[in-house]
Amino acid sequence: MTKLQMRVRFDFMGKSKSGRLLWGGKSPEQLAEELRQHKASLIRNIPVQGVHIDDIDMSQDVYSIYDEITGKQICFAPVFITFTASSMEDAIRFTMKEEFRTVELIEPEEITLSRSEIEKLLLRISEELINYRDYIEKRLDNWK
Rank of each mutant, 00 (worst) to 15 (best):
S18N: 10
V51F: 06
I106E: 06
L140A: 10
V103M: 15
M6H: 07
F12G: 04
Q60I: 14
L35E: 13
C75T: 03
T112V: 15
E29T: 14
L123K: 03
D141H: 15
T95L: 05
G14S: 07
R36S: 12
T84W: 08
I53W: 03
M96R: 04
D55S: 13
P28G: 14
W143N: 10
H52D: 09
Q73G: 00
M6C: 15
S86A: 08
L22Q: 11
E137W: 00
M96D: 08
L123S: 05
T84Q: 02
A85Y: 02
M88W: 07
D55Y: 08
G25N: 08
V79K: 01
D54L: 10
D67H: 02
M1W: 11
Y66D: 00
D57Q: 12
N142K: 12
K144F: 12
D141W: 07
F94P: 06
D67W: 04
N142H: 10
D57G: 11
F80D: 12
E29S: 13
R93Y: 01
S116V: 05
L140S: 05
M13Y: 02
R115F: 08
L21M: 15
K144P: 01
P28M: 15
I69P: 00
I125P: 00
F80Y: 12
S114Q: 07
F94H: 02
S18P: 04
P28Q: 14
V51T: 13
E89D: 04
K26P: 14
L129S: 12
E89P: 04
R7C: 09
H38A: 13
M88I: 14
T112F: 10
I81S: 04
E128P: 05
D134Q: 09
T2E: 03
I81C: 09
S86Y: 01
L42P: 03
R20C: 15
R124I: 07
E98V: 02
P78D: 11
T102L: 14
T82W: 15
S86H: 06
Y135N: 04
Y132A: 01
L122Y: 02
Q37I: 09
H38P: 11
F10M: 13
E89V: 13
T2C: 00
S87R: 03
M6D: 00
K26R: 10
E110R: 10
R115Y: 06
L21F: 12
K26A: 14
Q5K: 15
K26I: 14
V79S: 06
W23T: 09
D141Q: 09
I92K: 06
I92H: 05
E117Y: 05
Q37E: 15
W23V: 12
L22V: 07
S86D: 13
Q30G: 13
G19L: 11
E137I: 07
I53Q: 07
I65P: 02
V8L: 06
F12M: 10
A91G: 08
Y135P: 00
E34A: 12
